[in-house]
Design a binder for these strands. Structure first.
Length: 423
RNA sequence: GGAGGUGUCGCCUAGUCGGCCUAUGGCGCCCGCCUGCUAAGCGGGUUUGGGACACAAAUCCCAUCGCGGGUUCGAAUCCCGCCACCUCCGCCA
């Protein structure tokens, strides 16, 4: 949720943000009108309620005829108070509904455009020249099946399309990545977390995933619960409704969980292999911090992502995601795109968002700093999405005979193994 | 899944056959007084949200006793639903 005060004090700022997102600017006037209506109906209710209370106090002390007279008078008032209260509740709900439609206020210096506008702000490493090495590039699925790491057919048999089994070397790779990510997370001072992957509606809605992204979320109707698409959801909701002591901040977490995504609307897109799947495991970083520290914290998360990908030896680019392609919660987002040799282009492997106070307002996460209380800022960033990273490793470390070299940093977690041989 | 119990302003707690509850007391915390210093003692303050006053401070108003409804002129208190926790039974990694 955006700051209701900002709407009143600087509606133009909100209009600019809506425009940058490519969303309705008229919504601002709608919200202002709803706010006005809300305040006047609340004030009408409060006046009537005050009168009712003072009458009530007199009734308590009165008796006999006086009491009877007062009772008669207050009966009528009681009905009015109820009606006014219903009106006020309704106006308040209507206002909230409008305000919740706004995405986070986009930072002014976020580049304009949509998902096709790629602003590359950094580049690390460079793709191998496979031709020069005399290698005919295979894609991750051919390689994965070749070394016995991925079984898509049985994934489909057991669970349907976009499901897979990681087998033997594939499973070992994931475990090694988990260990390596955990080692990094601890070195950076993050607290490791294993959160529930099933959450209630408040958690899902509070993190902003039931808005424009609702179709992409699995919902269990019988239990009124949602399968999370990222550990960001339970990690954000972890402190919901709490007032944290400012001295505890920043709180830096690294949560490991499965990620479930319906991938609605992506039929026929990236259908081969494990690039786009309904489930994968992921290590996700999450920070609660003071609002004024959020921009620096965002850089920190990005640096950690870059360090991780660099250590694994995957060539990648860093993108400053265009304003029209931001998620509802993000004021700014950086994506890291890793090189996919079989596609001859860079594809997303990590993403980090600065949600400023947007999520914290919805989830009621505040901090007490001396006498003042205000909402914290929240940020999230991918540490390691297993399926994508395995894909990157398979393709970038392939050899002419279909074997795959193990990235050096992972060898300690694989008993020193250096190569996965093709079978 | 079945039976019973519990849920009060940071923590503990009083209050439940409706109205002096504007929610008691203790601990903790904050401010002040006193005092060679500290402690003790004394006095005051201390839920959160919204709103009024052009900002701030002060003050005032409304809401807030797990959440949501209902009964009533009036609900922490009575009724209904939900949630969480505890105990026992059943089932089960």
């Amino acid at each position: 949720m955006i700051d209701p005060k900002l709407l009143r004090t600087d509606p133009d700022r909100v209009r600019r943000s809506q425009k940058a997102r490519g969303e309705s600017v008229a919504l601002v006037d709608e919200a202002l009108a709803a706010d006005e209506a809300r305040r006047s109906s609340i004030s009408a209710f409060e006046t009537a309620r005050a009168e009712q209370k003072s009458l009530g106090a007199r009734i308590a002390k009165a008796s006999g005829d006086e009491k009877a007279a007062l009772l008669a008078r207050t009966k009528e008032l009681s009905g009015r108070v109820k009606a006014l209260q219903a009106e006020a509740d309704e106006a308040d709900a209507a206002y909230t509904e409008v305000v919740k439609q706004f995405g986070n206020i986009v930072f002014e210096d976020v580049p304009a455009g949509g998902e096709d506008d790629l602003y590359v702000i950094d580049e690390v490493g460079s793709p191998r020249d496979f031709a020069a090495e005399g290698i005919e590039v295979k894609d991750h699925l051919d390689l994965g099946e070749g070394i016995g790491a991925i079984d898509m057919e049985r994934g489909a048999k057991v669970s349907g399309s976009r499901f897979y089994f990681l087998t033997g070397p594939g499973a070992l790779l994931e475990f090694a990545l988990i260990q390596f990510a955990l080692t990094k997370a601890l070195a950076w001072g993050l607290t490791p977390m294993i959160p529930p992957a099933l959450v209630n509606p408040e958690a899902m809605d509070g993190t902003g995933f039931l808005g424009q992204a609702a179709d992409d979320v699995y919902y269990l109707e019988r239990d009124n619960q949602y399968l999370v698409g990222t550990a960001e959801v339970p990690l954000a909701a972890y402190h919901s409704g709490e007032i944290l002591d400012a001295s505890e901040l920043p709180i830096r977490l690294a949560g490991f969980s499965p990620a479930y995504r319906r991938e609605a609307g992506s039929y026929g897109k990236d259908t081969r292999g494990i690039f786009r799947v309904h489930w994968f495991d992921k290590f996700e970083m999450f920070t609660y911090c003071r609002p004024e520290d959020a921009v620096a914290e965002h850089q920190r998360l990005l640096e950690q992502e870059k360090e991780f990908i660099t250590a694994l030896g995957i060539p990648f680019q860093v993108l400053d995601v265009a304003s029209g392609d931001l998620g509802a919660s993000a004021a700014r987002k950086y994506d890291c795109y890793g090189w996919v040799p079989s596609q001859g282009r860079y594809r997303e492997i990590t993403s980090t968002s600065n949600c400023t106070q947007f999520q914290a307002r919805r989830l009621g996460i505040r901090m007490r700093d001396g006498k003042t209380i205000e909402h914290v800022a929240t940020l999230n960033g991918t540490l390691c999405a297993m399926s994508r990273m395995i894909l990157m490793i398979l393709e970038n470390y392939q050899q002419a005979d279909g074997s795959v070299v193990v990235p050096e940093v992972l060898r300690p977690y694989l008993g020193g193994q250096e190569v996965f041989e093709a079978r």
